[in-house]
């Protein structure tokens, strides 16, 4: 009976979505806001990647809220899972291949992650994507050697300072007479690495914060798994 009701619900949802979907004119998006942003973004923000201009320039305060949500989630996971009991023995280190592979991968992942973060205003990518790669760079050694866990204090320092830097850049824009998180500094030439004013700095802060937060989150989950068994 319950399954039948659930299936009816799912079918009804599919029908509803289909009816709404038929209203869309696929491939001819009206783009009322997008058109305006596209024509104004090169002069106002100066970022070659218009998605970055939207994320950090036009919706900067939304990005701040997003970072706050991520911070809340990682704090809540830390709160729920608690600290690992020191009495429980961690898993033994993995084999030679996994350990060597982890050590080889870490610098490569760091370079790729920082590259993606710093080129976020030019090419697809940016702070969130690069931050996830940074988190992987720090989490893979933990998987290879569970006996040497991540230093949570260092992670917390990076996280706190990068979050504060994001807000401070926003406040600097406020202080210099603009709006909160308005892009500052010289726009530079479109397409150069040093261009788009404070956007690369903001994305660097976002990337470090996301990386530290996700690495801490994963380390928490892994530690809780160890202490359970």
């Amino acid at each position: 009976m319950r399954n039948l009701a659930s299936l009816l619900f799912a079918g009804g949802l599919g029908f509803l979505l289909m009816v709404f979907g038929l209203q869309f004119d696929f491939g001819n998006a009206p783009m009322l806001v997008g058109q305006a942003i596209q024509s104004a973004a090169p002069e106002q923000v100066g970022a070659a990647n218009i998605v970055t201009a939207v994320v950090l320039g036009y919706r900067g305060i939304d990005t701040l809220g997003e970072l706050a949500i991520l911070f809340a989630a990682s704090t809540a996971v830390g709160l729920i899972l608690g600290h690992r009991h020191t009495s429980t023995k961690p898993d033994p280190d993995s084999g030679l291949i996994l350990r060597a592979g982890g050590e080889l991968l870490m610098p490569l992942l760091l370079v790729v992650g920082l590259y993606i973060i710093l080129h976020g205003h030019l090419t697809p990518g940016g702070g969130f994507q690069g931050g996830v790669i940074l988190a992987a760079a720090f989490f893979i050694p933990v998987l290879a050697r569970p006996s040497t866990p991540l230093k949570h204090t260092g992670m917390m320092l990076i996280e706190g300072f990068s979050g504060a830097a994001f807000i401070l850049i926003g406040l600097a824009a406020l202080y210099s007479g603009g709006e909160f998180l308005q892009p500052l500094l010289d726009k530079g030439t479109l397409g150069n690495l040093v261009s788009a004013g404070t956007l690369p700095l903001l994305y660097l802060a976002v990337g470090l914060k996301v990386g530290a937060e996700l690495a801490g989150l994963l380390a928490h989950l892994a530690a809780a798994e160890v202490s359970e068994s």
């Binding site: 997008g34 942003i37 218009i50 998605v51 939207v54 994320v55 939304d62 997003e66 940016g126």
Partner: peptide, 10 residues
Amino acid sequence: DPVPQAMVLT
């Protein structure tokens, strides 16, 4: 349209 892409990123 860049706006939905930025939203999906979020």
